[in-house]
Computed example of a mutant assay.
Amino acid sequence: MNQLQAIVFDMDGLMVDSEPLSQQAWDEYLRPYGHKLTEEIVSSIIGLRADMSTPTIKAMFNLPEPVPVIIQKRAAIYSQIRASGVPTMPGLHELHTEIARRQIAWAVATSSPRHHAEEILQQLGLHNRCQAIAAGDEVTHGKPNPAIYLLAAERLGIPPKQCLALEDSGPGSLAAVRAGMTTIAIPNAQTKTADFSHAHHRYNSLHDMLANLDTFFGN
């Protein structure tokens, strides 16, 4: 296992607890129409890019506005909600302290747009440490297509097979596996019932990842 050279992080629901905020943005958009997302709907769209999840919600609630307008309006709401800060997932900063100490290369591969990723990394104080970002608006196909993970590896300059991917969603972990990365699923409250049978490992938190770093990167 010691051939691994880098870690590629998903962002939403893995580094930061942003999924409840994302759901809040949807609920605010849907309120005038008398709708809100159920747990079932949230589970079905987690990890997907906006252009993949929005048509589903539009059809489900028979929303009158075109998909691009819905995406734009909901993104503006989400941006306002995020501006006051996003909670970190347990163990994130401890893990990144150790990654920095060991000088392990790392990147972010997120379905969200690049400006969102940069904003979150700034808020976390990790922007200057992140060696590469691959975002949903930089690839033709979103997760579960492997394109985002392949782009992250390319920008790191490290082959996918030498990268360890950390993911909280089914589509995301499938994308990482398809890219050829060793993949660890770390489900959150919204994704704990997802199918992770394709993932190589499953941990409960980033604390578990920290405890197992030697397994993948040696001492």
Rank of each mutant, 00 (worst) to 15 (best):
Q5V: 01
F9C: 14
F9E: 05
F9A: 04
L14R: 05
D17E: 13
S18V: 00
S18N: 10
E19P: 06
P20R: 01
S22V: 08
S22F: 14
S22Q: 07
Q23F: 14
Q24K: 14
A25P: 02
D27Y: 07
L30T: 12
H35Y: 15
E40Y: 01
I41S: 03
R49H: 13
S53V: 03
A59Q: 11
P64F: 02
E65F: 06
P66E: 12
P68M: 00
P68T: 09
P68N: 09
Q72V: 00
K73V: 11
K73N: 13
I77E: 05
Q80V: 10
Q80K: 12
I81F: 04
I81V: 11
R82I: 14
G91R: 06
L92A: 14
H96P: 10
A100G: 12
R101N: 10
W106E: 01
V108M: 02
E119R: 14
Q122I: 12
Q123H: 08
L124T: 06
G125W: 03
G125A: 04
H127P: 00
I133K: 01
I133W: 00
A134T: 07
A134D: 03
A135S: 11
D137C: 10
H141M: 08
G142R: 05
N145Q: 14
I148F: 03
A152G: 15
A152Q: 07
A153Y: 04
L156Q: 09
K161G: 07
A165C: 11
A165M: 11
D168I: 05
S169K: 01
P171V: 11
R178L: 11
A179F: 09
I184M: 12
A185N: 02
Q190C: 12
A194F: 15
D195F: 04
D195P: 01
S197A: 12
A199Y: 05
H201W: 15
S205V: 04
L206E: 13
L206H: 01
H207Y: 14
D208K: 11
L210P: 05
L210C: 09
T215C: 14
T215I: 12
F216A: 03
N219W: 13
